[in-house]
Amino acid sequence: MQFLNLEAKILEILKYLNIKNFRLAKEYNEMPVDIAFVEGTPTTREEVLKLLTIRKESKILVALGTCAVTGGVPGLVNMMAKKEAMEVYDGFPPDVPIDPKPLEYYVNVDYNIYGCTFSKDELIELITSLIIGKEYRDKEYSVCVECSLRENNCLLDDGHLCLGPITRGGCKALCPNNGKMCLGCRGPYEDANIKGHIKILQDMGFTKDEIIESLSLFSYEKFKEVISWLKEE
């Protein structure tokens, strides 16, 4: 949907790209395509098959938004016993569910656009790179970088459970700019010192449970190992 929120920009993009398939905005949809943007993550067998078809029928596959990139909030269900999760629908889930995983678990993903909701600026950046043939690179630094460039007061200093130091930058520190701690919606970046940050949070007085809850909100699938390590610590 953020695509439609590009508003003025979308007209410019349409000069270079044709929209062949967009279920939320078009009546007639076709495949194959050059670039497929996939939002969300499969939670049923059918959806997995659909994802495999999309991969086969597209040259470039982009995981769009947190659910697609890290498994996101749906991934939280992997923390609990299946039986417990089924209770949500009175024991009658709409379909036989499977564990929500990041798209990369099923198919090769060419590019990731992070965030919940993902950043429109980064989407434009990717599209621009694809059009002019420039390399698009993931940000390999944390939210703290963009936050301190804006001379913000550190929310960790104020005693908030902020995930800035381990969360991938690129959002221009939207939440900390507005005095809200980083919830980690963009997931961890490759170089994140997660154990180091857990130590900082523990020294600040946060309990294991509080830290685990905060880590799993958006990226349980990515933090799984560190969470089980923390539980045993």
Partner: peptide, 25 residues
């Protein structure tokens, strides 16, 4: 945790990156 805060706050740290921000084409 490699947050870079020490670099940005430091009065003598001077490293920078140069980027071209272009329009869509």
């Amino acid at each position: 945790v490699s947050c870079g805060k020490c670099n940005f706050i430091c009065p003598t740290c001077h490293c920078f990156d140069v980027k071209d921000m272009t329009n869509i084409d």
